[in-house]
Design a protein around this nucleic acid. Structure first.
Lengths: 218, 218
DNA sequence: GTCTATACCACGATAGAC
DNA sequence: GTCTATCGTGGTATAGAC
């Protein structure tokens, strides 16, 4: 664990710290100490803190997105015509994010928390990273959702994808605010939560649009 | 606008800056300059940056939560026995958040963005603030949802509330990552989005639980 | 009680020696 | 590729003026 090159050691240390505490709460000096490298090495290898964040994220996002697209390819191959099964599309969207488990001690996979953190980060740099690593995913799944929900107008699908992403991100990264109100026997296992999430989103996606009320134009 | 007392001027300036840029991106020195007050006055009146964040948030959260509870009281008064209408409960939960418009220039109400920012903040201090200002709301609405969905087990309601909150927070505060994929004619009006959100959540909440798969125990 | 001036230490970033 | 020194800015603390 200590014989890896500087770059990897920085990435590993940063990944753990960022997923646990968020980006702005973790200083480069903390990462440097945890990785056991020199002060300036982060800037040498990654240019800036933002560059490091992007590198940490993209290292994991690439295989996750590849798996998402593979699963979607399989679904589309088996349903060349007619509507796609919505549940399968949703599973292809959600499950690969959770599958990658780097830290066996943690209940939730690091990449999932990392992604959720990035999605909720107000910093415009985060938005750029998200946009760049997810445009392909967004485009491919948008059309897949359109094929799974042929009666839903594209504008509504667009909005509902955002609801779905928000629900996913929050339930993955969100602190457990109301643990003191948690009913006995609540499943905190991430796989159970994600399956519950897929059911929730599926129903939300399927619901027909209600007629527009006057006075809503932007 | 300049004759207000120091405390209010700090709160107003901070509220605007925080909702636009998030908390960590805005320095106290920026707030101080915008408010035209002295460097130390923030610490005098609010103790710390976290104290200021809490004060900014609670000033708006109090009336919003009061309105939520009023609406819920009305619903419960009209349905003394039997199940509550889910849609009305959801509207009581969502709409007051969006109603408060302090900044006419912005498309989205400041408090809504502020709340969403706070919900997604990794800092434990944010979790404390959220917990303190929302426990009553969470408890009251939990039992209301249980009355609206008598067949759903409490553990599932607990989880689904988190999905709902995540969807709401993300669609309010989330940067518009994929504006370049936005279909023509998409409604960006906050009232339209929130009504769409209520439909989405209602369907997600209503969907029956699927049987548990073995190997999911935590 | 309210406000002001000033100082302190940690942070991200950079330049230049090795 | 690595290390050290240093800069500007951030949150914070406090002593003292009104």
């Amino acid at each position: 664990m200590e014989d890896l090159d500087t770059k990897t050691r920085i990435l590993d240390a940063a990944e753990k710290l960022f997923s646990d505490n968020g980006f702005s709460a973790v200083s480069l000096r903390t990462i440097i100490k945890a990785a056991g490298v020199n002060t300036a090495s982060v800037h040498y290898h990654f240019g800036s803190k933002d560059g490091l964040i992007a590198a940490v994220f993209e290292r994991r996002a690439t295989p996750v997105n590849a798996e998402r697209l593979e699963m979607l390819d399989d679904i589309e191959a088996e349903h060349r015509s007619g509507p796609l099964p919505l549940k399968l599309v949703l599973q292809a969207f959600v499950f690969p994010v959770v599958r990658l488990r780097q830290d066996p001690k943690s209940e939730r996979p690091m990449f999932a928390r990392l992604m959720a953190r990035l999605l909720n980060e107000p910093d415009p740099m985060a938005a750029t990273i998200v946009h760049d690593t997810f445009t392909t995913i967004f485009a491919r799944f948008s059309t897949a959702f359109a094929r799974a929900l042929p009666e839903l107008p594209p504008e509504e699908i667009y909005i509902r994808i955002h609801f779905a992403v928000g629900a996913m991100a929050f339930s993955i990264a969100g602190p457990h605010f109301f643990g003191d109100h948690k009913p006995q026997g609540t499943q905190t296992n991430i796989n159970h939560i994600m399956r519950s999430l897929v059911d929730f989103i599926e129903a939300g996606m399927r619901t027909p649009v209600t007629e527009t009320v006057p006075g809503d134009e932007t």
